[in-house]
């Protein structure tokens, strides 16, 4: 909880990031048997549907159910041609993966796609900010090859040796669908929020089934560190993911162009910063003092927001 508060504070204190566009590519691979085939395809299709109906996607959503390596290459090459440095790209992989100790591959119809090849394709895309969500079995084996500064890498398994089929993708889809995933209620589900949501639900799944968990999702977004189970300021992971908007779920209050409200906006921003600062100081404060000051700031923020909404 403390870690979350700190992380949010860091995220909120960063300059707002705007993207011209976000490109989404979702790929589901071979299931091997009808059950998995159907499940993988359904999850990929669901992601596609959710993204297409969201405001931010702007038609830049591609879904490859049972996609081949050639199709993936072609899709990423198209994005590489279109995308600008200020854009973002999100690649989501669902299916079975394999890792032989050296090389990770996602199982696709025809030749498989290796992590190294995927990394090369992604490196050619000019979009500075990138998110790769590898939800396959053994996906932990792809992290080392995929990580890079300004790229968030999420894997459903902590290592390449977690080889059992995963359920992380099911809850990743749910994170995109469930408003509860937006824990800071800013109408944007960030990559970090979706990761935490899916990870918690995945753990809950194994717990409720009384099964030993065979997957442990991890995140790496510094480009140089080890992927971690619980990103936090202490381990330095999660900062980029916290500011990476994965999905806009409501009418995000984009900065109003009404000059009359600029003053209110400035006040709002100032109050938010004061609240963040106060949260940092919480541990060192008397609880009653903290509550009093927090209450006053939150009330003022609510009043400011009310005035802005008029």
């Amino acid at each position: 909880m403390k870690a979350l508060v700190l992380l949010l504070a860091v995220a909120l204190s960063m300059p707002p990031v705007t993207y011209a566009a976000t490109y989404y590519l979702t790929v589901s691979g071979l299931g091997g048997e009808p059950d998995y085939e159907q499940r993988f395809g359904m999850w990929a299709a669901d992601i596609g549907k959710i993204l297409k109906t969201s405001d931010a996607a702007d038609g830049k959503v591609e879904t490859l159910v049972n996609g081949t390596r050639e199709q993936v290459r072609a899709a990423l090459e198209r994005i590489a041609k279109e995308a600008q440095p200020q854009d973002a790209v999100v690649v989501m992989l669902i299916g079975h993966g394999s890792f032989d100790g050296y090389e990770y591959k996602i199982n696709l119809p025809g030749p498989d796609l290796s992590a190294a090849e995927l990394a090369t394709l992604l490196d050619r895309i000019p979009a500075t900010r990138q998110l790769v969500v590898n939800m396959t079995s053994s996906s932990g084996g792809s992290i080392e090859v995929l990580r890079r500064p300004n790229r968030v890498v999420i894997a459903a398994t902590k290592t390449g040796t977690e080889k059992n089929a995963t359920v992380f993708a099911r809850y990743w889809v749910e994170a995109l669908r469930d408003p509860a995933a937006d824990t800071d209620k800013n109408d944007v589900v960030s990559a970090l929020e979706a990761f935490r949501y899916a990870d918690k639900k995945t753990a809950g799944f194994y717990d409720s089934q009384k099964r030993l968990a065979t997957e442990h999702a991890v995140l790496e977004d510094t480009g140089k560190g080890d992927a971690v189970r619980a990103p936090s300021p202490e381990n330095g992971e999660g900062q980029l993911a916290a500011t990476f908007p994965l999905l806009r779920i409501g009418a995000t209050a984009s900065a109003t162009k009404d000059p009359a409200k600029l003053e209110l906006l400035a006040k709002k921003e100032q109050l938010e910063q004061q609240i963040d600062k106060l949260k940092y100081e919480k541990a060192a404060m008397a609880p009653e003092d903290y509550k009093k000051q927090l209450g006053a700031l939150l009330l003022e923020l609510a009043r400011t927001q009310e005035a802005l909404d008029k």
């Binding site: 824990t183 800071d184 209620k185 800013n186 938010e272 609240i275 949260k279 927090l294 939150l298 923020l301 609510a302 927001q305 009310e306």
Partner: peptide, 10 residues
């Protein structure tokens, strides 16, 4: 505290 901009709570 968890979500300062949460409109219904505000």
């Amino acid at each position: 505290e968890a979500a300062p901009g949460f409109r219904p709570a505000q």
